[in-house]
């Protein structure tokens, strides 16, 4: 009842001491809450199983004819493998004024894909098949004039209308900010593609 008498207007209340005790308990309480939050937050992180799924995957190119597109799953994401025709490859060389980053200045590809084809081999294109706007999977539309009058073939995202050419380079005036991402990859031999790792 000592505290009670002090609270009832006794002159001897040491307000400084009381403020000190209040602040110390608040600080300790805050530390306790942070400590309790550690396991709760750590628990939410991707686990070891998720890390396992990031191992490289292999893809056999022998069945892929010029003009074909295949989709492979890597890290839960669609990876496109496309064998472009000779005409499509040569068309990539003339710089289209409607592209927003034609020379791949923005880091969206490994160093070896920083060329007009955005690929190791001019004919084989490997891309992460997710729009750089909000992550939808665009559609492969190689036929000219398929989307509009100026369409030379490429990828069209049906979610918000972003357009990319046959090297995954983004057009101007669409919501997507950057070119499509090129994942790390290399050729084990002529017919075997490894996605998810650089050449050792």
């Amino acid at each position: 009842m000592l505290i009670l008498r002090m609270a009832m207007g006794n002159e001897s209340v040491d307000l400084k001491k009381r403020a000190f005790l209040t602040r110390t308990s608040q600080a300790l309480g805050a530390i306790a809450v942070c400590g309790a939050a550690i396991p709760l937050v750590q628990y939410l992180k991707p686990g070891r199983e998720a890390a396992m799924s990031s191992l490289p995957v292999e893809f056999d190119l022998s069945g892929l004819k010029p003009g074909d597109q295949r989709t492979v799953l890597w890290r839960g994401k669609p990876i496109w493998v496309i064998r472009r025709t000779m005409e499509q490859v040569t068309a990539l060389n003339k710089i289209n004024p409607n592209l927003s980053d034609p020379n791949s200045q923005i880091e969206q590809q490994p160093e070896y894909a920083k060329n007009p084809y955005r690929s190791l081999r001019p004919d084989i294109l490997v891309l992460v098949g997710l729009c750089t706007h909000l992550g939808c999977a665009p559609t492969f539309r190689p036929e000219p004039k398929a989307i509009d009058e100026d369409w030379d073939g490429g990828f069209f995202c049906s979610c918000h209308g972003s357009k990319f050419d046959l090297a995954g380079r983004v057009y101007k005036g669409v919501p997507a900010p950057t070119n499509l991402e090129v994942p790390p990859y290399y050729f084990k031999n002529d017919q075997l593609l490894v996605i998810g790792a650089h050449e050792a």
């Binding site: 550690i38 396991p39 709760l40 750590q42 628990y43 992180k45 686990g47 070891r48 199983e49």
Partner: peptide, 9 residues
């Protein structure tokens, strides 16, 4: 066994 702090929770 696999989830961080799963045993604790």
């Amino acid at each position: 066994r696999e989830v961080p702090y799963g045993w604790l929770l």
